[in-house]
Amino acid sequence: MLLAPVRAALDRRLDPASAAPLAVGFSGGGDSLFLLKTVLDWAGTRPVLALVVDHQLQAGSDRWTAEAVAKARALGAEARALAWNGDKPKTGLPATARRARHALLAEAAREAGAKVLLLGHTASDLAEGAAMRAEGSSVSDPREWAPSPVWPEGRGVFLLRPLLGLSRDDIRQALADQGETWLDDPANTDLRYARARARAAGAGEGASVETALKAPLTFTVDGAGVIRLSRDVAAAHLAAALLCAAGTDRPPRGQRLDRLVQRIRSGETFAATLSGARIEAGDDVLICRDAGETARGGLAPLDLAPGQTGVWDGRWEVTAGDAPLTVSALKGRATSLSAADRARLVAIPASARPALPLILSPLDGPDLAPEGGGRARLLVLGRFEAAVGLIDQESVT
C-alpha cells in the first residue's frame, strides 16, 4: 500500500523505454534508502546511479559517504561519491550547502547521461518547511517534478520527488519491517539549523499540497533568446521569463515584481529593467537580456580550450572546435562583423542585439553564434518551457 503512490509517480513521470540511467540522490538515510530500493525495483534492467554527496561539514563524513556508496552497490546500483570541497561560509551555511549539493548532483547526473534526478523528500519535509517559514525562513516547498534549481549546472536535468505523499515515520517503519538499517546524519539533530529545530518540535502534519503551474497560453522565444508574452501575463510566468531571458539563477520576487506586473496589465507603454532583463511593453511584452547590467558578472568573456564546452552568460552553451575560442558580448563590436552577419542583425530587436554572443576565433575572426550551428546552442527556450511546466515527464525532455 505504501509503494502504490510512489510507483504511480514513477509511472507518470518516467519513460520505461528509455535506456538513460536514473540518478538518485542517496545519503544512506532512511528516506533515500527507501527511494533507492523502490527505484531499483521499478527500473528493472535500466541503469540506476546513486550519487552520494559529502559536504565535508562533519568529522567522519568520509566514512559515512563510503558506507553509503557500499550500501548502494550492495543493493545493485552504480554509485559515485561527490565532495563539496573548499572553504565553507561562516553565515548562510544551509542555503550555500543546499546550492552546492544540487550543483554536484546535477553535474554528475548530466555527465552520466541522466535526464532525471530522484530525491527522497517526504511529506515530513513539507511540514518542516512550513514550520521554518513560520519562523521567517525563505525555504520553498519541494515539488514532485521540477527543473533543477541550479543554473547552469542543472541545465537539462529534472528533479523527481515521488515520496512527497509519505511521512518519514511510515517510511522508516516499512524499512524496519524489511530488516533494514540506515544512517542518521548528526546535522538532523543540530539545533543551530532551522530544519533540525522544526524536526525537534515535531513538525509532521499539515503538509501543503502542490499546485501545478499552468503554462502561458501564448508566448514566443526567438533565435536570439527574446521572449514575448501577452499583456495579461501571470506573475509566475513573468518571473520565469525574466530569469530565463537574463540567464540568471534567481527569479525576481516581492514588490518589484508585483509593481511590474501591474504596469504591464494597466496597458502602459514603457521600458524597464529588472533582475538583469530588459522589459519593453507595447502591443505585447518583449523580454531580453539587459546589456547594461553586469553587476553579477554577466556578459563577462568566456575562454574555451579546443573541444571544451561552457555556458556563456547563462543563455548560450558554446563548444569550441579545433581552436580555442573567446565568447563575449556583441555590444560595441557590431562593426567588426561580416556584411552577412550585420544583415542578420536586422531581424533581431535592437534592444537584444548588444547582448548577443560574439565568438572570437584565431582561425575565423569575429562571428555571431548561430543557433543550431554546432558551436552555440541557445538555452533560453528549453529553460523557459521547463520553468512554466511544459515539460512534465522524462519522455518530452
Rank of each mutant, 00 (worst) to 15 (best):
G156E: 02
D125F: 05
P366W: 08
V261R: 04
D125H: 06
L243W: 03
V24Y: 05
R342G: 02
L238S: 03
D322Q: 13
W312N: 01
P162D: 07
K37Y: 07
V388C: 12
A83G: 00
L160Q: 03
L242A: 01
V311S: 00
G204K: 13
A19C: 07
V261P: 01
L217P: 07
I227H: 02
A305R: 15
A196I: 13
L118W: 14
L356F: 11
L82R: 08
P142D: 04
P252I: 11
M132E: 10
P216I: 12
F270E: 01
G292A: 13
A20Q: 01
A246G: 08
G298S: 11
P142I: 00
Q178K: 09
V157E: 03
A50K: 09
D54R: 14
D392G: 11
L93K: 13
K71L: 09
L104C: 03
A146D: 09
T309Q: 08
D290R: 10
A134E: 14
R377H: 03
R161D: 04
A50D: 00
R344A: 04
T122Q: 05
R143L: 15
P149I: 05
D341S: 05
E107S: 08
G382S: 13
M132Q: 11
V39Q: 13
V157R: 08
A323V: 13
G373Q: 04
